[in-house]
Design a protein around this nucleic acid. Structure first.
Lengths: 141, 141
DNA sequence: GAATATCCTATTAAGTCTATAGGGTATTAG
DNA sequence: CTAATACCCTATAGACTTAATAGGATATTC
């Protein structure tokens, strides 16, 4: 299940990317437009800023903005920041590898084998798409 | 993150599939061999029986056994039973579709668009593999 | 220097997952 | 027949995670 954090984060990024001008946008505006609790969104945007996806400006006229162009923001990075490891078990994780304590041997573990394939399938999607790719044109009359 | 339920369930199925004879195996034997809490495993095997993956036999000499051949047990079925919907959001689920209450229009939702691709990637893996495919030969000296 | 908007920590409420407990029921062996 | 065996089923408790809220600190602009 996708966490609300990830869902809200993606929606916020999409909203920022869809604006013609890349000037600072206030949390409150994003929250209102995307139906998100403002305070919760605040913490999400903060983590996106700390990890180099967003920039921010304080004070009047401040807000958040994309640091890179949407076409340069990979889904792999976004998903790792928001949702955590892409692998469903630590023993097949590229960036967060950990041995299972209950499993004597990964080489003969069927869970490992299956989850390795799943990880690669997901990586395939995330690595080949950027924020620009998931923008959807709103239909005009 | 893969739930322990799914992990244990897969290990139990693998254990059953790896046995040469398809005769009933006691819960206790599986639990011991795979390092799983016996009572927890009991409930997992029960749900696999109720959904037609396993059969069971009561009384002395009883236990659980595979109803079909490993090559006929699709990972899609197993994963849906153990882990639930394959889609990460209900609005892209084939079997458990539900509209997001906070999303005005799926057609213009970037989360929907991304998760649709992820779902298809995962389905691709699960649909093309059976229990037989994830069995791993243990190395013999 | 007052208003604005982000920054940061702590906390709580809700929900889910994991595991355990305890007894019920059907089957088999002798 | 009967006693042992092993699955069947429900309920519940504890741990953990997630979602949301609260409250104030800090920096910037006009």
């Amino acid at each position: 299940m996708l966490s609300k954090k990830t869902k809200y984060g993606l929606k916020a990024l999409t909203y920022l990317a869809s604006r013609s001008e890349n000037c600072p946008v206030q949390i409150s505006e994003i929250a209102k437009h995307e139906n998100i609790s403002q305070k919760f969104l605040e913490s999400i945007l903060l983590s996106l800023r700390k990890t180099g996806i967003l920039g921010s400006k304080k004070g009047k006229g401040g807000g958040y903005y994309l640091i890179k162009k949407p076409a340069d923001i990979l889904m792999t990075d976004v998903m790792r920041i928001l949702e955590g490891p892409i692998a469903m078990v630590p023993c097949v994780s590229l960036n967060f590898y950990e041995k299972c304590d209950d499993c004597p041997d990964e080489a003969t573990c069927s869970v490992n084998k299956l989850m390795l394939m799943v990880r690669d399938a997901n990586l395939g999607v995330y690595r080949s798409h950027t924020l620009a790719d998931i923008l959807v044109q709103s239909k005009e009359a």
